[in-house]
């Protein structure tokens, strides 16, 4: 994980990701705080930092009568009632919409973004920098500035309250960052390999698909992961452009605003369920996440 020699990238997926707790390493000699004390301090801070999330999960397993108490209840008999209630209240259609919007838009981002990033990395097209700058600049435009025209356009095309509107918008939303990330991954592919393939007469699709993609798989995974997080969590377009048919999981959560203070346990169960898919994916693919966020600067 540190700066090793350029490791064969194909080995990366095999590397164990996620909770790797290797041998409790022997501490280096250092002044100041002892290593054991530093470890305890680290753990204390980590637990304190995530305590709101832990509290959320804990609350999800409570009865409503235990959820909002003064002082807070720490010991109780766990129950799955709240999860049952959430599923009973039509949660699944929202989940389905979120899945479609997230997966299809991520796929589209890769379909559009991989060739674009390739073009921007191989030989600098004239004005490469301008194009890159243009892409990132679209992320700086506040979405509220375009939501009315989008709303009107969707209404005219009878695309209000359809999940495909969200798919298109999420694709546009994530494409700029994806192009930036993918380009930085493309830049790491040795030029010799590409030229060799081209000399053998392989066309662009072949070069992309069978030469570059295998090398770039971790980078593509990292990009896809970031796109999925942002699509799954997106709220503004979802709440403004959908109603009953195409509403996604974050919109489902709005229903709890009105019942504030009354159904905390149920709210906690819904929040836990709604976040679970992305949380689990993020946990499993931590290393890819780091690679993606650092725009490929770290191997």
């Amino acid at each position: 994980m540190t700066t090793a020699a350029p490791a064969p990238p194909t080995a990366t997926p095999a590397r164990k990701s996620g909770a790797s707790a290797p041998t409790p390493a022997r501490p280096r000699r250092r002044g100041g705080l002892g290593p054991a004390a530093l470890t305890i301090l680290t753990w204390a801070i980590a637990l304190l930092f995530v305590s709101p999330a832990l509290w959320l999960v804990l609350t999800a397993f409570k009865q409503e009568s235990d959820a909002a108490t003064d002082p807070p209840t720490f010991f109780f008999e766990p129950t799955l009632d709240q999860f049952r209630t959430v599923f009973a209240s039509d949660f699944l259609p929202y989940l389905g919409n979120s899945l479609v919007a997230t997966l299809v838009s991520t796929l589209l981002v890769l379909l559009l973004g991989v060739p674009a990033a390739y073009a921007l990395s191989i030989r600098p097209v004239k004005r490469t920098q301008d194009v890159l700058f243009f892409f990132i600049s679209t992320k700086m435009l506040p979405v509220v500035a375009v939501v009315v025209p989008l709303y009107v356009a969707a209404a005219r095309l009878s695309m209000l309250d359809t999940v495909w509107t969200l798919v298109i918008l999420y694709t546009a939303m994530n494409l700029p960052i994806a192009v930036w990330m993918l380009r930085s991954f493309f830049l790491e592919v040795p030029k010799g390999i590409i030229e060799a393939a081209q000399l053998e007469g392989a066309g662009l699709p072949r070069v992309l698909w069978s030469v570059m993609l295998p090398i770039m798989a971790p980078g593509v995974a990292a990009t896809a992961l970031i796109c999925m997080i942002f699509s799954w969590n997106e709220f503004f377009f979802a709440v403004n452009l959908t109603a009953s048919q195409a509403a996604t999981v974050p919109v489902f959560m709005v229903g709890f605003i009105t019942s504030e203070g009354l159904f905390w346990a149920q709210l906690a169960a819904a929040a836990t369920l709604a976040s679970l898919p992305i949380v689990v994916i993020g946990w499993v693919a931590q290393r890819q996440l780091v690679r993606g966020l650092s725009m490929g600067a770290v191997k």
Binding site: G18, V50, P52, A271, A274, V279
Partner: peptide, 17 residues
């Protein structure tokens, strides 16, 4: 793993929490 979790939770849920 614990420390990255808040970034993964849906912001809408975070706000309600």
């Amino acid at each position: 793993t614990l420390l990255i979790t808040p970034f993964l939770i849906i912001p809408v849920a975070t706000a309600l929490l």
